[in-house]
Structure formats: structure tokens, C-alpha cells
Write a protein that binds this DNA or RNA. Structure first.
Length: 892
RNA sequence: GGGCGCAUAGCUCAGUUGGUUAGAGCGUCACAUUGACAUUGUGAAGGUCAGAGGUUCGAAUCCUCUUGCGCCCACCA
């Protein structure tokens, strides 16, 4: 073992991180195909691709820490590990962002001014730039992902997957074009899915009115301007007030607007107790009303559908000449004014209501009838006998097709219920967007007549859906693009080469583990399960770990608008990557939000430095040690530390396997700092004074260090690898073997006694203000554990660590365990008396509480024997201790 | 309207299927330290586990209710 006295006094992450990462990358070990040894078991993870909308934030660093810890652990366990990195073109998010930037730079309407190709070019430029930044950031946080398999949701391979999937679904009849009310963002000039809507609360005026004086039913609304498109009034079928009108039709003249033909219809969904118990039906501008319209059509008693609001958010010609072109607000005032003048407005009041807004453009979503592409979740899939909804349900309950091995398990479990609730209420998914940045819908149209009416509006003409463009003249591709989640839904397998039958796909899918924040449970988790179970008949992953949101020190969300953003690279610069990673993985629990603050990183940095110095001490202090296969315990302390090490190895394993990264960290930290550094390292200094123990002590130090470096590596990869360099090992730590040592005796009560004595003496010294410099004499009276104190080295340990000059050992033949202090100096006997009696009192309270339990028949008969026995032991020990303390008090 | 989460030391949080005198980090106080450690070590103080009831031999942990905070969902026009 080479001595290295040149190790710097403090760990300097800035000096080694980049070169270590480069060394890992050059080794090829990020790629499972290059991993050394005979690895059969696979462990694969797909990185949730960050949006190419800018730079990574702490949340990404957090996710990378989670993934990398998991993946490094599995690699050390000898698995064939794959972590695929990637980025997401994030259709709407990126386009919205770039448009916003262009507008800020002075452009009034980027789409108009630049045109499709021009704008796309700008977005491409921007996204490529942020992609570069992001990939660099992923490297900086140390993520051990396979760069040779780097993927992008918008590259050619992924595009092929998207087109293939779309066509397959179309051919199975799951994807269809349908005319219905959609969520429309006027600002974004595009549809969006139900999942992309953020509801906000606002106040609105609630108007109660009649269409005309002789119209028999009063209705109410917060959107009077939409009433210009009403074609029915719905009432509950059993509402006695209105029953007599059901089926009747009324012509109403509403001033400057077009006259309306209103039919009174019955519908179960109308709540007779809300408002007037009657609902003005506007099929064109309300999803519920549209459903009634469809129902009426099916019944053969159709009502009209009158779109009065256009895609530009303004009133249409169908609203009437005087209304055409007005904004909704102006039209509303105009109509209310008319109602008022005609004595038709009966009431107006302020209410709070929830409205949907676009999550990217921020404007209020309008309901507008349009023809769009949809995914049917309720249609039976040919050859499968079940619907997409059923697949999604099975995947998390009984396992896909009833195969328990094809089951996604969600951590923490409570999210399973949320998922299932959502699956039950799932509606058809609107796939098409009128955005430009995204996968173009693989559909082409050809008009039947030379001068056709618009195909979209009427559905006239030929439609071709295929992976490639159709042959022949006159075809135009659909100008719409696909919802961004359509491509991310296929991420777990499109990254592995699907639709081609690749070896990767065979080897690595289903993937083993996925982590994501709960905020994309609906958006992403559900869609990945949908896509994978449909296209591959396999679940996308076996385990999904749901984490919370990272918040600032005050519990606020990190966001650009509140200006509390933290750049992970800044943190890395100041504290080092390991410290950042450690701080992100500490104090977290699955599914719950966590706070991030500098003190946390600070303490993580201190720990990393501690680990460094532990290593520095051992490495520079060791004369000659060869790699230790199996350490041999020669002293009680040796036996103890080996037992503890063995236990902590097993615990770390178990905790990572159940995704409890935080606790694994904490336990490891306690062991490293307290057991190893504070106790064993100090003891080793004493042991090494003894020539007979010196070499073996070094071996043990070395063995423990080697082991904890492996245990720490998943969490703090850089510092551990840097230390590892000094070991003269041919292998890099990243591909070392996980420690397998297990010793029988993991809990060592004898050593705990030794510790206890030292702690008691220290405590006593502090209370009696005995300077550390001052040596004292001690008489130790022991029964039960007498043997261990006969050992010279143990006495030496007590003497050194507790600063004892003369130590006298006496055996207490009554058994038990006690110790007395005999000091050659004046001490405050009164104070000592008080101290002892307080301790005795405390003990006696404890003893009596134990006695109450132990004499309780109910307890002794009903509690498990193990528990009773345990308490009995505690009781006896406490009693003996109390006895000894009393003795000590008498001797005062 | 439905659902979920959280409430434990001054602060941030642990506490596995109910079983010792409820833990850690940071902070606070005292002492010691340039001997592996920009620090670290040693010791200490600090909690009626939000409240009320219940189940149990035994509850921070399970059940019911209440209060406060946060989040999600929903077609109250």
C-alpha cells in the first residue's frame, strides 16, 4: 500500500470532480455492454427527460441524485446497469417560452411575422442551446448514464416511434377524428388536454334572467354572452315546476342578436336545487351542454349547435351582426344591458367560481367546438378484449393480463389510489395541437372536389394515416402536431429502439425503476403505462418512486416569478457535488415535499470533509497493508467495529432496496462519524501503541474504510472515488464489488459497557468541572462483565479516553455492573450527592414503572414472551445500577 | 362537494408491521482543542408527540371527531 502523505488537509472537490467524471466516462462503464465481470442480472432506468426550455434547477439535481444513487448501488451489486439520458422537446412549453422571448424582444406576433419555418428555426436554435447546457449539467451532478444511448423526444428515432404508435392506434380504431367541444387557449391558439388545465378561483357575476317576457323558465349564468348560442333549457325530469314544458319549443327574440329556438329538455344531470333549477344549454361552449346535444341527437330530437365565440376569442357572425367581432367582455355588457332595458334581468350577484387556465399560456380556457384527433380510452382493443382504461387499471392492480410479474408498484402506496381514481374518470384524450413545435400528425388529406370546403370543418375528402406519406397527387399533411405527452408516453421503450426489434428492447424492457414528482403522476405516469401496455403488452417499469417537490427554506415553491431560484451549479461550485447530492437526499420521505437551505449543504460538506480526513488519517498512517480479505478481531473494540460494520452494510442494502435513501444516508453517517471516527479511530491510536496489535489494527482500519467507501459511493461518488485512488487498486470504485461481509455477532454489549463507563466518567468530569488535563484515579467495581476489564488493552482504552491516572479493578461477587470514582482531590460532595440522588430518583421512577407493568397479570399473560423478557432484563439491570449508585452515595 | 397529505425539541425533519426512559441535524450553553478534520472533540439544556374521545395489557403509531396549514380532483350552470 503506497503511503501518500501529500493528501491535502481538506477535500477539494473543485480540483477533482471533472477529471473523475471524465475518467468514469472514458472507462466506458456507464455503458452496460462494457461493464467488467460476468453480469447477468439487468437493472435499467430511463431518465425522465428534462424539458429543453432552459437550464436545470435544483429539482433536476434532486432527481439525478436519486437515480444515480440507485444506479450506482445496483452497479456495485454486480448488475448490468443502464441509465439512459435524454431531453424532451416539450412541445407547448418550449414554443410558449420562445414566443414569449420573441415578444419581449419586440415582436408583436411571432407566428405571423416569422411563419412556420421561421419560428421553428428560432425554437430549434433555442432548444439546441438549452440541450447543451442541460447535458453538461447532468454531467456536473455526476450522473452515471450511458451517453452512447442519449435520446431526445424529438429526434428521428423517437419520431418513428411516435408515428408508428399513432398509426397502430389508428388502425386499431382507438385514434379517431371527432368534432366536439375542446379546451381552447386563445393566447396559444391551440387546444390542450384536460391535464394541461390549471384551475384558478376568481370572482364573477352571476346573472339571473329570462330570455323573453313570455318565456316560462328563468335561468342563470356567469357567461351571458354565450347565451346567444343557446338552443335548449334543461331541467330535471322529475322537477314538478317544469315538467309540463318538457318537449316544448320556444322562439325567443333577443334583440340585436340572432333569434333563438329554445327547446325544453330533460336531463338527469341538472340539479333542481341549484339556481333556478333550470340550465340554459349552450352546446357549442360547454362540455356538459355538448354532451346533452349529443344525447338529444341520439334520441332523434336534435337541438342546434351555435358557435358564438370563435378561435380568436371574439364573437362570431352567428351571434348576430351587432355582436360579431366584439370581445366576450364587451358582448357580455351589451347583452346584459339589453336584458336590463327589457326588464329581463332579475338578479345579479358576485360569486366565486373556478375557471380553467392554460398551464403554459396562462389565459382562461374557452370551450369551442372543433374537429380534433382523439384517443379513445373506452374502446375495446381488437385482439385484446379490453380497453386502454382496463390496461391501465390492471397494470397497477392484478398485473397486466393478470400476470403478477407485470405489475407496477408505486411508492408511496397512497398514489396508487389516486392513480386508480383518475383511471376511472378518464376521458378521451385530445391529441392534436395547433402548435408548430412538435411531432406532426401522420395524417394526410385529399379533397374530393377541386374547390373543397375546408376539410377540417366538414370531414369531406379522403384521409390517409400512415407512418410514411401517401403516394399520389394532392395530399396535404395535417398541419397539427401531437400533444407532447404522446412522445414522452413512449419514452421507456422508444429510447430502446422500438418499433424495431432491438436487443436493447429485449434486454432492458420493462425497465426496473422510475422516479418522478407527484405533479406529473397524471400527465406522465399514466401515459407511460398506457403506451407500454398497449404497444408492447408490457409494463414500462416495475417500480415507480414518487417524490415531492423541493421548496425553499420558507417552504415556498422555487419559481422564476418569486426569484428564489437556485442554480445547482452555483451550489456545486461552493460546496462540491457530493455535498449537494447528500443534502438533497437527506431529510426526504417518499411523496412528501422537502426544503432546501444552505445549512443543509453546509453540514453535508462537513461530512464529506470528515470522510476525507478519516481516509487521510488511515492512509497516511498505515505502514504496509495489503488488501484485507477477512479481518480478524483481536480486541473487543475490533470485534465491535466489525460487527457494527456488518450490520450497517446490511441496513444500507435494505434501505436502498426499499427506496429509503434518506435513512440509509443517516445510518451510514452515524456509523461513519460516531462509531468509526469518534470511537474506533480513537481506540486504534491506543491499540497501535501495542506492537502486538499494531498491524492488525491497521488492517481493520483499512478494511472498514474500504467497506464504507463502497457503501458511500452511491451517495457521494466523487470523494469516494478520489480516495479510492490511493488504494492502489486496479479497479475503479464505480465497478467494485459491494461488500458482502456478514459476521454473526453484530451487537456487542460488552463493548457498549466499555463505552458507557467512559461516557459516565466524562460526564462526571464535566459536571464536577474537572479539567481534561487533570488526571484522576478510578476504582472500577464490576461483576457481570468482569472478564472484559481484565484485558489490559480495555483498561488502557478507559484510561486514555477518560483520562485516568490509576485504575483499580475490583470484582463485585454479587454480580451486576457498577463502577466507582475515587479521586485524589477535593470535590464538592454536596453537589455530587445531589447528582447521585437525582440519578437514583430517575432510575427508581423507571424501575417502578417497569414493576407496574411486570406485575400486571394482563400484561404478562397477553404480551409476547419476548417483550416481557426484555422488560424483565431492563428491570434487573436498572435495579442493579440503582443499587450501585446508592452504595456510591454512602461512600461519599 | 369529494379526496389526500401534514401537525413530534427554537428551526428542518426521522420514527418501519403498536412494545425500553420518543431520536438526528442545525441552532443554543459550558469546556477543550492547530496532535486526520477550513474545524473538530467532550458534555449539557430543550418535547404532556395539535386537541378530545375510543380500541388495547400497552398508542407518537390503530379508529372516530375537532382545529390549523398545504395540495389534488369535480360539469354547480
Amino acid at each position: 500500500m503506497p503511503n501518500n502523505p501529500d493528501l491535502p488537509k481538506a477535500y477539494e472537490p473543485q480540483n477533482c470532480e471533472d477529471s473523475i467524471y471524465a475518467a468514469w466516462e472514458n472507462s466506458g462503464f456507464f455503458n452496460p455492454d462494457n461493464l467488467p465481470g460476468d453480469r447477468t442480472e439487468v437493472f435499467s432506468v430511463m431518465m425522465p427527460p428534462p424539458n429543453v426550455t432552459g437550464v436545470l434547477h435544483l429539482g433536476h439535481a434532486f432527481e439525478n441524485s436519486l437515480m444515480d444513487a440507485m444506479v450506482r448501488y445496483q452497479r456495485l451489486r454486480g448488475k448490468k446497469v443502464l441509465l439512459v439520458p435524454g431531453t424532451d422537446h416539450a412541445a407547448i412549453a418550449t414554443q410558449a417560452k420562445v414566443e414569449k422571448m420573441l415578444i419581449k424582444e419586440g415582436m408583436a406576433d411571432p407566428r405571423k411575422e416569422l411563419g412556420r419555418e421561421g419560428l421553428l428555426e428560432k425554437i430549434r436554435e433555442f432548444s439546441e442551446q438549452s440541450k447543451t447546457t442541460i447535458l453538461n449539467q447532468i454531467r456536473k451532478v455526476g450522473t452515471s448514464c450511458d451517453w452512447s444511448r442519449l435520446a431526445y423526444t424529438f429526434d428521428n428515432d423517437r419520431n418513428l416511434a411516435v408515428r408508428t404508435l399513432f398509426v397502430k392506434m389508428y388502425e386499431d380504431g382507438l385514434i379517431y377524428r371527432g368534432f366536439r367541444v375542446v379546451n381552447w387557449s386563445v393566447k396559444g391558439q391551440s387546444t390542450c388536454s384536460d391535464d394541461e388545465i390549471v384551475t384558478i378561483e376568481r370572482t364573477a357575476k352571476f346573472y339571473t334572467f329570462k330570455y323573453s317576457q313570455d318565456f316560462p323558465i328563468v335561468i342563470a349564468t356567469t357567461r351571458p354572452e354565450t347565451k346567444l348560442g343557446d338552443s335548449a333549457v334543461a331541467v330535471h325530469p322529475s322537477d314538478s315546476r317544469y315538467q309540463k314544458f318538457i318537449g316544448q319549443e320556444f322562439m325567443v327574440d333577443i334583440g340585436a342578436a340572432n333569434p333563438l329556438k329554445i327547446k325544453i329538455i330533460a336531463d338527469e344531470n341538472v340539479d333542481p336545487n341549484f339556481g333556478t333549477g333550470a340550465l340554459g344549454v349552450t352546446p357549442a361552449h360547454s362540455a356538459i351542454d355538448f354532451a346533452m346535444y349529443e344525447k338529444q341527437k341520439a334520441k332523434g330530437e336534435p337541438i342546434a349547435l351555435i358557435p358564438v365565440i370563435g378561435q380568436d376569442g371574439k364573437m362570431t357572425a352567428e351571434a348576430g351582426k351587432e355582436y360579431e367581432g366584439l370581445t366576450c367582455e364587451v358582448a357580455r355588457e351589451k347583452f346584459i344591458d339589453w336584458l336590463r332595458r327589457n326588464n329581463l334581468l332579475l338578479n345579479e350577484e358576485e360569486i366565486t367560481q373556478n375557471v380553467g387556465t392554460s398551464d403554459r399560456y396562462g389565459d382562461i380556457i374557452e370551450a369551442i367546438p372543433m374537429t380534433q384527433w382523439w384517443l379513445d380510452v373506452n374502446k375495446v382493443i381488437p385482439g385484446r378484449g379490453k380497453t386502454l382504461r382496463e390496461l391501465m387499471r390492471e397494470a397497477v392492480t392484478i398485473g397486466l393480463d393478470g400476470d403478477a410479474k407485470q405489475k407496477v408498484s408505486i411508492t408511496p402506496e397512497r398514489f396508487t389510489k389516486l392513480y386508480l381514481d383518475r383511471v376511472e374518470n378518464l376521458r378521451d384524450w385530445c391529441l392534436s395541437r395547433q402548435l408548430w413545435w412538435g411531432h406532426r400528425i401522420p395524417a394526410w388529406y385529399r379533397p374530393l372536389t377541386p374547390n373543397p370546403s375546408p376539410v377540417e370543418a366538414t370531414g369531406e375528402g379522403e384521409v390517409y394515416v400512415g407512418v410514411e406519406a401517401p403516394q399520389g397527387e394532392g395530399w396535404t399533411q395535417d398541419s397539427d402536431t401531437l400533444d407532447t405527452w404522446f412522445s414522452s408516453g413512449s419514452w421507456t421503450f422508444s429510447t430502446l429502439g422500438w418499433p424495431n426489434k432491438t436487443k436493447d428492447l429485449e434486454d432492458f424492457h420493462p425497465t426496473n425503476w422510475m422516479q418522478m414528482g407527484y405533479e406529473i403522476l397524471y400527465l406522465w405516469l399514466m401515459r407511460m403505462i398506457l403506451m407500454s401496455t398497449y404497444a408492447l403488452r408490457k409494463i414500462p417499469f416495475k417500480d415507480v418512486y414518487i417524490h415531492g417537490i423541493l421548496r425553499d427554506a420558507d417552504g415556498k415553491k422555487f419559481s422564476k416569478s418569486s426569484g428564489n431560484g437556485i442554480d445547482p451549479l452555483d451550489v456545486i461550485k461552493e460546496y462540491g457535488t457530493d455535498a449537494l447530492r447528500l443534502s438533497l437526499l437527506t431529510g426526504i420521505t417518499p411523496g412528501n415535499d422537502a426544503r432546501f437551505y444552505p445549512e443543509k449543504v453546509e453540514s453535508a460538506k462537513n461530512f464529506v470533509n470528515k470522510l476525507w480526513n478519516i481516509s487521510r488519517y488511515i492512509i497516511t498512517g498505515v505502514s504496509q497493508v495489503s488488501v484485507v480479505q477477512k479481518p480478524e478481531a483481536k480486541t473487543l473494540a475490533d470485534e465491535w467495529i466489525i460487527g457494527r460494520l456488518s450490520k450497517i452494510t446490511k441496513q444500507t442494502e435494505e434501505l436502498i432496496e426499499r427506496f429509503d435513501f434518506s435513512l440509509a444516508n443517516e445510518k451510514l453517517r452515524d456509523f461513519t462519524w460516531f462509531d468509526f471516527a469518534d470511537w474506533y479511530l480513537e481506540i486504534s491510536k491506543i491499540q497501535k501503541r501495542d506492537e502486538a496489535l499494531k498491524e492488525n489494527t491497521d488492517k481493520i482500519l483499512f478494511f472498514v474504510l474500504e467497506t464504507i467507501l463502497k457503501l458511500w459511493h452511491p451517495f457521494t461518488p466523487f470523494v469516494t472515488e478520489e480516495i479510492w485512488k490511493n488504494f492502489g487498486s486496479k479497479k475503479m470504485l464505480i465497478v467494485e464489488d459491494w461488500p458482502m461481509m456478514v459476521v454473526e455477532k453484530q451487537d456487542n454489549t460488552e463493548f457498549e459497557r466499555l463505552k458507557e463507563i467512559i461516557e459516565k466518567i466524562r460526564n462526571w468530569r464535566a459536571e464536577n468541572k474537572v479539567e481534561p488535563k487533570e488526571k484522576i484515579n478510578l476504582t472500577l467495581i464490576v461483576g457481570e462483565y468482569f472478564e472484559i476489564f481484565k484485558d489490559e488493552i480495555n483498561l488502557e482504552i478507559i484510561k486514555t479516553l477518560a483520562r485516568i491516572e490509576n485504575l483499580t479493578l475490583e470484582e463485585n461477587h454479587d454480580g451486576g455492573f457498577s463502577y466507582q470514582f475515587n479521586v485524589d482531590r477535593q470535590i464538592d460532595t454536596e453537589k455530587e450527592h445531589a447528582r447521585l440522588s437525582a440519578e437514583i430518583e430517575n432510575l427508581e421512577k423507571y424501575i417502578s414503572s417497569l414493576e407496574t407493568k411486570l406485575t400486571n397479570q394482563e400484561f404478562t399473560s397477553k404480551a409476547p414472551a419476548q417483550v416481557v423478557e426484555g422488560l424483565k432484563q431492563k428491570h434487573d439491570e436498572a435495579a442493579k445500577k440503582a443499587e450501585a449508585l446508592k452504595q456510591q452515595m454512602e461512600n461519599l
